[in-house]
């Protein structure tokens, strides 16, 4: 999870991030050369001015050098402008055929992720974990339910804002399979820093298999512990905000928990999803993320263990 390119704009994993990093390096090299050249010219000018005691005229002494500098400046600026426009054209979502559409909705402070089929019907829902097939263009439809957020997967693309009351569209593509961390890049309130998600780029076969799992309803509880956990889920406060497909819990206020056991992280990629963290999160989510909208849930210890067992079984 902590490889060197886990969240790194300089290690692109797709064509769009590649374009951006190309423009970035071009700008950096041009600016570095110009910076160094200006300092060298400045030092030469100062040294020459010291030797001369009295300037006989204020007119420029070397019109040729001036013209050269002017031409170089104009040329470089034009080159930068052209590279910037070419980069923006390459990044434009317009006219790009995609294989899949995914709707991402920003909430304070988590990401709701819904997969659409060819008819734009919502077929699967998850949270804070975006799976994409490797080597395919995917259209991301961005929306926000409260304030402005920003979708930023540095390894795949630049930032794109999620604006309330408006849908914005862009296209991403991952060419290298891997795990990439993404971060909300627009200050959105108290827990903005802890509003992240992970992108999992996987081969098409694995992706389709994962999506088929996500489409299915939640697994039925098998053991007595899991059955009691389901009872706890449905009879206490959980179902007031969360949904588990295939049960009577269907609220859309908090993240969908139909396959929560298969997720790698909790609380918008803040803590790893394991038994201890899940119990702690349920008991007092505010301890991890002060200001989080999930209230503390004082449950009987046996009920809590059963609930966690049930949620872990929802693969």
């Amino acid at each position: 999870m902590t490889s060197s390119s886990y969240q790194d704009a300089l290690h692109p994993a797709g064509p769009y991030a590649n374009t951006i990093v190309g423009v970035w390096w071009f700008y950096l090299i041009v600016c570095t050369i110009v910076f160094v050249a200006v300092w060298i010219a400045l030092f030469i000018a100062i040294r020459r001015a010291r030797r001369r005691v009295e300037p006989d005229t204020l007119a420029p002494r070397a019109p040729r050098a001036m013209m050269l500098a002017l031409a170089a400046t104009t040329g470089l600026l034009l080159a930068m402008l052209v590279s910037s426009i070419a980069g923006a054209r390459a990044l434009s979502p317009q006219g790009k055929a995609v294989t899949r559409e995914i709707q991402v909705t920003g909430h304070q402070w988590w990401w709701d992720i819904q997969y659409l089929d060819e008819r734009s019907d919502h077929i699967a829902q998850t949270a804070n974990e975006l799976h994409v097939p490797v080597g395919e263009r995917v259209r991301i439809i961005l929306a926000s339910s409260d304030v402005i957020h920003s979708f930023w997967v540095p390894n795949l693309h630049g930032k794109r804002d999620l604006i309330p009351g408006q849908k914005s569209i862009f296209v991403i593509q991952a060419d290298k399979a891997g795990l990439y961390r993404a971060q909300c890049a627009e200050f959105c309130g108290l827990q903005h820093a802890k509003m992240a998600f992970i992108v999992i780029a996987e081969p098409k076969h694995d992706f389709e298999q994962w999506l088929a799992t996500m489409r299915a309803s939640a697994a039925q509880p098998k053991t007595a512990d899991e059955q009691r956990g389901q009872q706890v889920f449905l009879s206490t406060s959980c179902g007031m905000c969360h949904a588990i497909k295939g049960t009577s819990a269907g609220s859309r206020v908090g993240p969908d928990l139909t396959h929560v056991g298969s997720r790698r992280t909790l609380g918008a990629a803040v803590i790893p999803n394991n038994r201890g963290n899940l119990s702690g999160w349920i008991a007092d989510a505010g301890g991890v993320k002060p200001g989080v909208l999930m209230p503390p849930n004082p449950l009987d210890p046996d009920d809590l263990h059963a609930l966690v067992a049930y949620l872990e079984s929802l693969k």
Partner: peptide
């Protein structure tokens, strides 16, 4: 009040 005690919940 950004953090509530468990007592405040029940």
């Amino acid at each position: 009040q950004l953090r509530h005690s468990p007592q405040a919940s029940t």
